[in-house]
């Protein structure tokens, strides 16, 4: 244990330490010339330069980008079209029939993502809550059980997608099990509803452990005393859950729900590797739409992709603000305690 930790630490820090030593003399000179202010600038510069170039700047020019058209990559070379890209995204002749929309793919992706978010988040939260409650039952070998659920969280989306593609294959092990039980095999990834359910199931499989762990931490923070007090009061288990456990878990629960929503809105990689958006457009989600319109399709339209990403960003900002507000409220509550 210590050996591994030490080795890892040494491997990571050795080049940094060497660099730090080399920089010692020039930086002492720099400090003498510029004072503490110069040093602060030096510490901030690398990170802030990269941050500005690759996070802030894209954020700012995204709006400008969404108001242009053409295939050119650089903003100055692009043609200004005002809100035309948004109009194109949002216009439909008959809003009850998505096929009449100018960008029917966008609307399909929107509808798919909406359905996905509602179903996936609901099921995910229920499963994570049950798992956390079970792990909180003072189990023996808790770290083993925690590992069981957490294990898929670290796997790459591509690996997750491929593992399940192999299992859900026409000749895969799941169909073998069905046939073994006397049922008909199913074309899991080639039938619309099955493929959509598979996308939900696989993303839940991959992320369940993460959310269960956060909820478990919340459950473990509830003092045992409270349960014992309730026991002395002769409280029935169901009433303990609804009146004590759930209200006290609520702060964590809200954070978990918002986080799950934020992730579900962006669903892409597992689903993309699993189904490629198909069959047809059955599992086409917003991020994949942005990716295809902006980069993958023959008729690239970066302006349209930018507009779509800004609409999605709007939803995410609302959710993020919600989360920050909840965090603040929890903090205030915590201080009162």
């Amino acid at each position: 244990m210590t050996g591994v930790k030490g080795m890892l630490g040494a491997v990571v820090t050795a080049p940094l330490v060497a660099l730090a030593r080399v920089l010692e003399v020039p930086l002492r000179l720099w400090q003498r010339l510029t004072g503490q202010g110069g040093m602060v600038a030096f510490f901030l510069l690398p990170n802030m330069a990269i941050f500005t170039l690759f996070v802030l700047l894209p954020l700012v020019i995204n709006i400008a980008y969404s108001m242009t058209t053409g295939a050119a990559l650089f903003l100055p070379e692009r043609t200004y079209v005002g809100a035309a890209q948004y109009e194109r995204l949002l216009r439909c002749t008959d809003y009850t029939n998505l096929m009449t929309c100018q960008e029917d793919q966008f609307w399909i992706a929107l509808r798919n993502t909406g359905t996905f978010v509602v179903l996936q988040v609901t099921l995910l939260i229920v499963a994570a809550t049950i798992t956390a409650l079970i792990l909180n039952r003072a189990l023996r070998a808790l770290s083993f059980w925690r590992a069981v659920f957490f294990f898929p969280v670290l796997l790459s989306p591509v690996v997750v997608g491929l593992i399940w593609r192999w299992i859900l294959d026409r000749n895969g092990v799941l169909n073998a099990a069905l046939v073994g039980m006397g049922m008909d095999p199913v074309n899991w990834l080639l039938e619309r509803n099955y493929a959509f359910s598979a996308a939900i199931g696989v993303t839940i499989w991959a992320h369940l452990g993460f959310f269960a762990l956060i909820l478990l931490a919340g459950l473990q923070a509830i003092p045992r005393d409270l349960y014992e007090a309730a026991e002395m009061d002769g409280t029935k288990p169901a009433r303990v859950f609804w009146r004590i456990t759930l209200p006290l878990l609520m702060p964590n629960m809200l954070v978990v729900i918002v986080l799950a929503l934020i992730r579900a809105v962006q669903v892409f990689d597992e689903a993309y590797v699993l189904t490629g958006g198909g069959p047809g457009t059955a599992t086409l989600f917003l991020t994949q739409y942005i990716y295809e319109v902006g980069f993958a399709s023959l008729l690239k339209n970066p302006g349209l992709a930018a507009a779509a990403s800004i609409l999605m960003g709007g939803v995410l900002i609302v959710l993020t603000l919600l989360q920050l507000a909840l965090g603040k409220r929890n903090e205030r509550k915590g201080r009162l305690k």
Binding site: F51, L53, F54, V55, L56, L57, P58, L59, I61, N62, Y65, L73, F74, L75, I262, Q266, F268, L286, T287, I290, Y291, G294, F295, P302, A305, A306, S309, I310, M312, G313, L316, T320, Q323
Partner: peptide, 21 residues
């Protein structure tokens, strides 16, 4: 404020900047 900004929101302009450099 930028903690939760996902990649998918800035995909297009980020690509143009990376290609610019």
């Amino acid at each position: 404020a930028t903690l939760m900004i996902p990649l998918s929101v800035i995909l297009v302009p980020l690509y143009s900047i990376v290609s610019g450099v």
